[in-house]
Design a protein around this nucleic acid. Sequence first.
RNA 1: GCCGAAGUGGCGGAACUGGCAGACGCGCCGGACUCAAAAUCCGGUGGCCUUCGGGCCGUGUGGGUUCGAUUCCCACCUUCGGCACCA
Length: 791
Amino acid sequence: MTPRYEPHEIEQKWQRVWEDEGAFRAPNPVQSEPTAENHWYQLEMLPYPSGPSLHMGHVLNYTMGDVQTHVRRRSGWHVVRPMGWDAFGLPAENAAIREGRHPRETIERNIETMRGQMKRLGWAIDWEREVSAHQPTFYRWTQWLFQQFVANGLCYRREGPVNWCPNDQTVIANEYVVDGRCERCGAEVELRNMTQWYMRTTAYADELLEYPGAEWPEKTKAIQRNWIGRSEGAEILFRVEETGEDLAVFTTRPDTLFGATFFALAPEHPFVNAHASEEAKEYARHAGARPVEERAAATTKTGVFTGFHAVNPINGERLPIWVSDFVLMDYGTGAIGGVPAHDERDAQFAETFGLPVVPVIDDEGRLINSERFDGLPSEEGKRAIVAALEQEGRGKPTVNYRLRDWSVSRQRYWGCPIPFVHCEKCGVVPVPEQDLPVILPDIEDYAPKGRPPLAANEEFMAVHCPQCGGPARRDPDTMDTFVDSSWYFLRYIDSHNDEAPFDRFVVDYWLPVSQYIGGIDHSTGHLLYSRFFVKAMNDWGMVGFREPFARVFHQGWVTLGGTKMSKTKGNVEGPDQVVDAYGADAVRLYILFMGPADQDMEWTPDGVEGIVRFLRRLWRIVHEVAERPPADDAREAALARKANETIVRVTDDVLRRFQFHTPISAMMELVNELSGAVDAPDARFAAETLVSLIQPYAPHVAEELWGVLGHERLWEAPWPEADESQLVRDTFELVVQVNGKVRDRFEVDASLDEDALVARARESERVRSYLDGGELRKTIVVPQKLVNFVV
RNA sequence: GCCGAAGUGGCGGAACUGGCAGACGCGCCGGACUCAAAAUCCGGUGGCCUUCGGGCCGUGUGGGUUCGAUUCCCACCUUCGGCACCA
């Protein structure tokens, strides 16, 4: 008599066993011993513990990683699969503010809940490696690394315009300003001038366009390419007639230089303030104050003549210098040569102010009105003109980037303190290594108020300068959370090391991450920053690789009501209810069965029933098979072949195609076939294969059924391998077409040669009726598949 | 405007290398079991036509290549994502 399928009992039972045995612990290699060749670092982006629960998007993500982990482990790979918490930062702090509690309390409670949910879903995580960004044992090394960046000239302080979120009361990075608004809270961002720490990401701008040894989705690379915005062109010097000074211009179209009819400066350009007429300065003050968004949205161009003229170095032409807000100070040099004939914006400007238009490229893309360069194709013209200017020291080829350095100072409390002190005598001085970490003090009033909350804490702020011993002040800002997440994947590998952030030997063994799973929304942020970190560390000799993530996969969004589940939108659905109702195995199977993992999917629990039916069916059938005495020599039938085919499909889909929903379909097919043949001699083989294949998806029920079949420890049993000999078919279904349309199909012997197949096809009554009366022009035979007659 | 992805039944989707379109599941319809229901099991389920043998149409639209196209090529439409007064 088959017992009832009771998921909760089974799941608790096996989770306890795995925990007691440390089943999913992955020991690090030891330098003196040989290391495994097949190693796999499975990583999914770590969660923010800012909400009180995981949501179904997390469930999708981590279940995918889990299936990959189990299949790799059982296929003989040494797999590490860690987990941790992105505990610092705005989302966590804002959640705490809403609750009226200290951020530490909120996030530590959330971490506990989420960890419990993860364990309840049975994910194979090596919990020994767990880290959280807010622990001093972690952020000590974030601070240490920060100092390394400074020491190596890749992190620096400067004053400049920054994006200020008036709602969150802090500076935010360019990468997290979307359409002029704060990516987190949606408030319109203001420009402010402040002194801030920056990571010099631009130092690697060119290299970030290359992905040595890393297979990334084209889409992600395109997003990063757009963001870096490399463009090749030339820098050209125009002399100001009245003052004799040179103004540089960046252009991607030096071939149109003869068409320049005016010269324009950004309102913020220093020349404007130094020389321009009062009217022009007045314009610049107003225009410069308008947000860029608004400037871009304006339909007509505005501007004021400065009273000065620039000399075009290629032909000596005298151009009026204007100031206009369509020229941007932070791209190129903040100055342009206006060519109305070949640039849409310049054309609008020229039209508004009645400036001349001189075409210099004809319909065939050749230069005209360009003196000795006439007739050259545009591309050649570019090179020739730049070369000519270079001879006279008036121009040179240049590359420009859209990428800006990453601003990392935040005027908020809940983050990693910046390990520098400000001394009036010595300047900005690093906190000595032996004094790290600079502990984030527990303060009562951490609410944002426009100046960093730590600044009000005298106990924290007042220090002695490490260099001269005189009075000094700590840096009251904290770091952007993305600094923490730029290296956490390295700390997992050596999370208990208290002498260094990590040991290079173990990190070089595991890294780069074999498979990284996470949202595509991090393409221009976290994924770019992490690459920057690793390239820098590689240059300093800290790591032996140059890319952090060998393969990247982006899951689709799990949506509710059409929008991505997120706390800010309030449409979060956690796993607890469904797990209560159906068990973890059903939830794991269902979230993956919903559709291709890289596409968005609307969450609805409606289909879970189908999965539960499937599990109950599996449960009953495996019990039925187990009750029958095992047959000898049981592998020579259709069921065995189906089982072998299923092994091939599941393995190929998970390991090569990274596809998780089709293997479930394949296993359902096998269950359907087995359900009608529990007495077949190969039924036991089919049942064992099935249970073994489903283990990565539904590890608890699989383990239980493995026991029913008389075995144990499925989680470490070898992954099934298909028996090639059983995949061979003696017969196949021959499809017979006439003019490409299927007219008949029947089983034939697989050994028949082409002539024999044609002969068999001709014998078909149905086919004959279509062949009669026509002239046979061609016969196409596809071995093992079809015969097509063309009449 | 530039760059990238996608469009298949009532729904989620499958078809990997050009070779039987719609696997698998949901939903729906019918049947068995039952006093009844749930659960379970069996069968059906793209559209139109049918003399019930089958026939025709069908993968966003229009063309093309091919014996044969969901798959390749060209043009277009729609949706989604990235960049964007970036010179």
